[in-house]
Computed example of a mutant assay.
Amino acid sequence: MIDSFKKFLNEEQDPKAIEKIAGKLNELLMNEETVEYIAVQKKPAVTISPDCVALTNKRIIFCRSKNLGLAMDFQDYLWKDVADCQMKEGVFGAEFTIKTTDGSISKIDYLPKAQARKLYSFAQEQEEKQREYRRQLELESKRAGAQRITVSAPLPSSQASQPSPAPEEPRPVEDEITASLKKLKTLFENELITQEEYDAKKAEILARL
């Protein structure tokens, strides 16, 4: 089974920890989401279930152990919501930190330096993609705003001086009824409707008086 996780073991991650976290991550993945890298915390003291951070093609997922490793909390951030990723190396490892567009911060420490560098490198690539994505959205928004702005040009003097045409007066109801009756009679005389249809329609028209 560990063969399927070999791509995550390039920087000497703990195979058991990778197998455990990868199994849980597979249940959380969205449609067309793939895990690109997993970094496992390595504290100076022995840790039964270390914390991890996983990078996918869609988000960053922090995996934090609780209840002596019997349970795990997952905290995820979509790449589009990540404003900045940072890495700081120390004596006992490195710290990986992210800052979101709304100002919140999440971090994981005691990462092996090689794994932290790999995280940082992948995160930088994603940041660049998101900056370009946000730039395109901003340009599209500006173009859409420009298209909504219209300037009303003044009418030519020849048109401006001409009075507006008077509104057409409504035709009297009697004229419409007379016209309808004539049309109905024509239909009857041309044998296009029956006597019964003629009488019924005539009564309906006269009822409008």
Rank of each mutant, 00 (worst) to 15 (best):
K6I: 10
F8D: 04
L9R: 04
E11I: 06
E11S: 11
E12L: 15
Q13I: 08
Q13A: 14
D14R: 08
P15C: 12
I18M: 07
E19P: 05
I21N: 00
I21M: 06
A22D: 11
A22G: 14
K24H: 10
L25F: 01
E27R: 14
E27K: 14
L29T: 14
M30I: 08
M30F: 08
N31F: 13
E32I: 11
E33Y: 00
I38M: 04
A39H: 03
A45I: 15
A45Q: 15
P50N: 07
D51H: 10
C52F: 02
V53W: 03
A54G: 00
N57S: 02
R59N: 01
F62H: 01
R64S: 10
S65R: 03
N67T: 09
N67L: 09
N67I: 07
L68R: 10
G69Y: 05
A71R: 15
A71V: 11
Q75Y: 11
D76M: 09
W79H: 10
A83M: 05
A83T: 02
Q86K: 12
K88F: 04
A94L: 05
E95F: 08
I98G: 01
T100Y: 07
D102F: 07
S104L: 12
Y110K: 12
Q115V: 06
K118P: 00
S121R: 12
S121F: 10
A123T: 07
A123K: 01
